[in-house]
Amino acid sequence: MSKRVPIAEGLFTWPAERPALLGSRCNNCGIASFPVAESCMACSGQDVTIEELPSRGTLWTWTIQQFMPKSPYNSGETPETFRPYGVGYLELPGGVRVEGRLTENDPEKLHIGMEMDVVFDTWRTDSNGDEIIGFFFQPSN
């Protein structure tokens, strides 16, 4: 029986009706970071609270990865099946700018400042049939 498992524990809520990226917010200086960290990069504080990050933000910058990266890249693709992919930082209001893959890889359809949603989808299928779930940024409708 195959399962749907997150690519890493604690990166986002899973399983959940409406999954969300998880960040940590410093209770001393108020700075948020992703992924969850035990201490604050800004003020060295060690008192942090884990919170769900917003699901919609604006694209701060982006590029298209046109060639297939070497290992540790692990997508199940081969050089023949590789498809270029977009990468960008999504500015989540009140939170942080999170780096992630984009669902769009056409440079004509991407521009700084566009609205995007955080979505969760199958990243690859493991050798035992499990679907590995990752997070992606998708242009908002």
Binding site: I7, A8, L11, P35, W60, T61, W62, T63, Q65, P69, P72, Y73, N74, S75, Y85, V87, G88, Y89, E99, G100, R101, I112, W123, G134
Partner: peptide, 26 residues
Amino acid sequence: LGEWYGEMGLMMTTQFFAMKIQKYMH
């Protein structure tokens, strides 16, 4: 960093430089 970061294809210096100049040009 977590292994997911490399597995998903984000561990690339080339992407950083491209994204930095993309923002800078804008």
